[in-house]
Write a protein that binds this DNA or RNA. Structure first.
Lengths: 223, 223
DNA sequence: GACTTTAGTCACAAAAGGTGACTAATTCAT
DNA sequence: ATGAATTAGTCACCTTTTGTGACTAAAGTC
């Protein structure tokens, strides 16, 4: 990330990094280099030659120490004049990381989505775009698993989906849909979480087991 | 559109204009200004200040004489060095127009998607991106109607969906799904199309009649 | 041991979907 | 004019999927 005195003719790459922090989603912000009171989405001015997604992945590396488990371009943003860089066009990406392995480098912090810092109009659009992209992908690909550690309980998975879809799901329906889609497979481990019966741990099922099985629309399920 | 001798530091806006030509989809191409034997997607170098979608809409105006009935950004493309402009980044849009009202300005021609002219790698990615975007939107929003004139028969609508989804649909299922979603309403006109019983004309139903009704996934219907 | 809490399963009713067969209105051939 | 062919439109029946409450299981708490 270079400061705003740099040449403006190029484009910036910005990334909306999302994680599931306990009971709510959170987005990563970086302290502004010029005004230490302000926060901004991580960004970097891209050099012409590099592929956009490499730049984005490297940017995540810089702020998190490791690459995202999933990343996708949201689009290009040019409306609204103010941006941390002076780039007249910015390409935004959305990335997911499981919260367990995500320890931000100094100067970077997770903010719950319900309580974001003030942003430039352009970066605010990016956050909205990220939300839309996640919602849209959610019923096309099993991206929720990118927010979880390698093994998890089905209750954790259901709570995550409830968080992402902002809606309650019925346990039996949820599990039946999971089974139909061959999305997960049980491990032989169990986890006791304080009170109540221990839960079996599952892992995301390798694709090959899913041949010929239809996808699932968890977003259509009722409570 | 300026020729490639112009400055290269800015970005280009490119548009993949799609229409339904009889029994196949078609994309609009412009004869290259430098090499009259080559074809390219319509593009233009954008000036910093303008909103990207205004630029795209104006570009469609220029090549078609009227704006698209629907347009959406596909994303930014930077990989692959060759592009008609020398812009190091291009923002692509996908637009839809009904074929009836679409008469390209001289130098622009529709090419069936099965038989496209040779393209730069970057523009080829854009065409693929357009296909993906259309497929993705198709089951989220009723964009198919943007390829049809204001009134149409249900058979025309079904054939269009079969074209877009590249799969045959069963008549009764298709109509039942349409009814459930309140997507169309009958007019009191009928059209006789040569042989066979005349078909009733329908129009796209205003949104307000659709309150509280769920969407339909035509892509899930079987033949 | 009784009660509470969370996990996991079942079974039944209701809704949605797949499909062939039917009726209706027109043109074309004889 | 009659009937075959063609396209539109609807129905009815069966199968599959989904919504949902109630049930069993295994732990902790008092």
């Amino acid at each position: 990330m270079r400061d705003r005195s740099s040449r403006s003719s190029s484009h910036s790459v910005d990334v909306v990094l999302v994680t599931a922090m306990g009971t709510e989603l959170a987005i990563l912000f970086t302290r502004s280099t010029t005004d230490r009171e302000r926060w901004a989405l991580p960004w970097k001015v891209a050099q012409g030659g590099e592929a956009l997604d490499s730049t984005a992945t490297r940017l995540v590396q810089d702020v998190l120490g490791e690459p995202p488990t999933w990343i996708e371009q949201i689009g290009a943003f040019a409306d609204g004049k103010r941006h941390p860089s002076d780039a007249d066009i910015s390409v935004a990406f959305v990335g997911l990381v499981p919260h367990e392995t995500a320890s931000p480098r100094p100067g970077n912090t997770w903010f719950p989505v319900a309580d974001l810092p003030p942003l430039s109009p352009r970066q605010r659009s990016m956050v909205e775009g990220a939300t839309r992209t996640i919602q849209a992908r959610l019923d096309q690909a099993p991206i929720a698993f990118h927010l979880l550690p390698p093994t998890f309980t089905l209750s954790e998975l259901q709570h995550l989906y409830e968080l992402l879809l902002a809606k309650r799901l019925h346990k039996a329906s949820f599990r039946r849909a999971l089974q139909a889609a061959w999305l997960v497979e049980p491990t032989d481990e169990w986890r006791s979480e304080g009170r109540g019966r221990p839960a079996q741990l599952y892992r995301y099922a390798p694709k090959k087991k899913r041949r010929g099985h239809r996808g699932v629309r968890f977003d259509l399920l009722h409570p």
